[in-house]
Design a protein around this nucleic acid. Structure first.
Lengths: 113, 113
DNA sequence: TCAAATACATTAGATTCTTATGTATCTTTG
DNA sequence: CAAAGATACATAAGAATCTAATGTATTTGA
């Protein structure tokens, strides 16, 4: 089972930031694999979604990059900037709060009407 | 505090379906107010988002409608169809599952790299 | 050797929201 | 009693963000 893609919308940026907060530096492909692994294949980040997101994080100054060569192949590492670290805390706690609210909404039993 | 709008994306349809499951029949404006009330103003559904969603649910056969007049003012009630009831269960449990996965993702502490 | 995996990236199109606008009725308050 | 605010529907242009497809190139493993 893979979550319907609408659910990923809006959480992708937070997922990426959180992974970077836990792992110091990661490259794009590594992020897709890590998410796939940690979620037992239930969340699969497509490259078409990830790369634009990473580029946006960079142009917002939330991450910095460094390029490395593995043989002849380029690998682009992303790390959180100080601003990025703060933003990550904000986004993660906002999402946690949101999920609590949603849990509450989804559990409403009484016909309050 | 109001959640950043990206978070609502993808959950709106599920919220509406769940409210209809709990309240038999509701009209659009009522839904916006109920969500606002239940979430202590943290989720505010705009009409520009809600009405197209309701219309989509209707054309997908998940809800049925009945019009009522309150004085001279029209009120359009929405109710779940049998298909809609099943879909609601699916969507709600998918979202619950997704949130568990996200909670797990957001709590990862070890630098697994 | 050749398919699959690794690794980057872009783009057209779809979806789904925001913001603004429009129409109209009803209620409350100075 | 006029005017503001609440109730109640709706649409539409534009923004944001994803999917799916495509492209390039290298490395690995059967």
């Amino acid at each position: 089972m893979i979550y319907s893609s609408e659910l990923i919308k809006g959480t992708l940026k937070t997922i990426v930031l959180k992974l970077l907060a836990d792992n110091k530096k990661m490259y794009g492909y590594e992020i897709t694999q890590k998410v796939k692994e940690l979620t037992l294949d239930k969340i699969q980040i497509t490259e078409g979604a990830l790369y634009p997101t990473l580029h946006a994080l960079e142009s917002d100054g939330l991450v910095t990059t460094e390029t490395e060569f593995i043989g002849k192949r380029v690998r682009k590492y992303y790390s959180l900037s100080p601003t990025g670290k703060n933003k990550t805390k904000e986004k993660v706690s906002e999402l946690a709060d949101f999920m609590d609210t949603m849990k509450f909404l989804l559990d409403i039993k009484p016909k309050t009407a």
